[in-house]
Design a protein around this nucleic acid. Sequence first.
DNA 1: CCATAACATTCATTTAAATCAAAGCCTTCA
DNA 2: TGAAGGCTTTGATTTAAATGAATGTTATGG
Lengths: 258, 258
Amino acid sequence: MAEKPIHTESFHNANGAQRARPSIGLSSQPFALESTDADKLSQIVEASPPLKKGTHLFLQGDPFMSIFTVRAGTLKTYTVTNEGEEQITGFYFPGEVVALSGIGTDHHPVSAKTLETTTVLEYPYIQLEALASQVPQLRTQLTNSMGKEIRAELQMMLLLSKKTAEQRVATFLCKLSDRFKQRGYSATVFRLSMSRNEIGNYLGLAVETVSRIFTRFQKQQLINVEGKEIEIVSLEDLFQVSGDAKVCDESPGSADYR
Amino acid sequence: MAEKPIHTESFHNANGAQRARPSIGLSSQPFALESTDADKLSQIVEASPPLKKGTHLFLQGDPFMSIFTVRAGTLKTYTVTNEGEEQITGFYFPGEVVALSGIGTDHHPVSAKTLETTTVLEYPYIQLEALASQVPQLRTQLTNSMGKEIRAELQMMLLLSKKTAEQRVATFLCKLSDRFKQRGYSATVFRLSMSRNEIGNYLGLAVETVSRIFTRFQKQQLINVEGKEIEIVSLEDLFQVSGDAKVCDESPGSADYR
DNA sequence: CCATAACATTCATTTAAATCAAAGCCTTCA
DNA sequence: TGAAGGCTTTGATTTAAATGAATGTTATGG
């Protein structure tokens, strides 16, 4: 509760070793440019040292200075309600962009916290903006990331307002599967870096409900659960349960997504 | 269900009279520029004729070509679930920006429909983008609008996942009040352009629940309801019920739309 | 201006998921 | 290594809001 956050400054001016120029242009990087442009981008990026589990990247109310991409590990973002309870608004995996919700306002509307040892890339927003106005491709990538965030949240609204507990959990697992697959990991076997509590919080469900549904899905041979390890036995069937329409995809270049 | 939408093309090439150059720069316009820049913006804008109630501005799945701002009237946006039920994702009043959710994808992820006779301004996205890359102020306004949309949706996620029915309705009324106030209308007396059904759908509640809460709030002297006419008797108390923290504000700065 | 339909309210009953309660199971670090 | 606390599971009970059913009210267009 009264936890001391580690602000971003903690690695802004960290020792030189930690600040080695990160290599940009990995396949899953959200901001990928070529040659001289990539070089310009790399000059404004800061790579964080490994941040251990439970570290805050920023707190709700902190001045908005930068956006981040995840290099390794997992983050969650959350808001704190008036009564002090936390509402998780997103999980972020390698290659994903964090803190877009701060754009256009002075202060972060959410907090961001690591769920495990995590490293990020920090893009000071003012510099990123300046560069984006010179490099159209970067501008497009940035704008598209915001669009994606908007659409992800729309999907979440739909989930929270119309889906049953089973559909929510199924949707959650299918989405995770898809995200891992897109980054080149297994679509069927993975590790949940968040607790049952965090899953429930995110999905608008009680922990107990999540737990019960996991065991139910296991009995129905949709998944195998062993603690945090998940194996999706039938992605087809699980998707069926999720109640979503077959997605014609968001990823390649442009394409439609619903 | 099998309703024929009126696509944007319906006024793209409408008669000349309907296409009179709109005057930009009204106080509540989200994209406000000065002198020569404003002139450039006005050259790409199309003003729609009055669209009567129930008209679709675009349908989910339509090619994304333009964004819009509301000049007069009200719009709702909604997605249709797999089972064919609609989920309203937003209401849009004069000065607000519609269709940002299509940015970065080929097709609109939502449909937009008028709730009453409505006129809009249409900004063809490609041209708007081209202009934005020349006019930093416009770029900023556009980006900020997207940021605001993201934050509005975060708020909505919180509402849907953590708030009680009473809190949701109170929040809804307070937000409306605030938006009307910001546009120079009365913060306490206004007309709901959407049905109880649409309010319920948006808030993740059954119609009956909305109805019951309206009457309950009336008995508690928080509001006076007479059909679609609302008077907020005690904004203070209503805000109290909404469970939100006093907002230290989003508005002053650039283009607000919500 | 009336007829018809769409919208809104009210009440009774049901239900999905929350809460309450308790026990087992992993971490972890002293 | 083993005790402590935090997670996870399971079951019993409660509850907020949905659903079902009916009536009243307000628009709408012929």
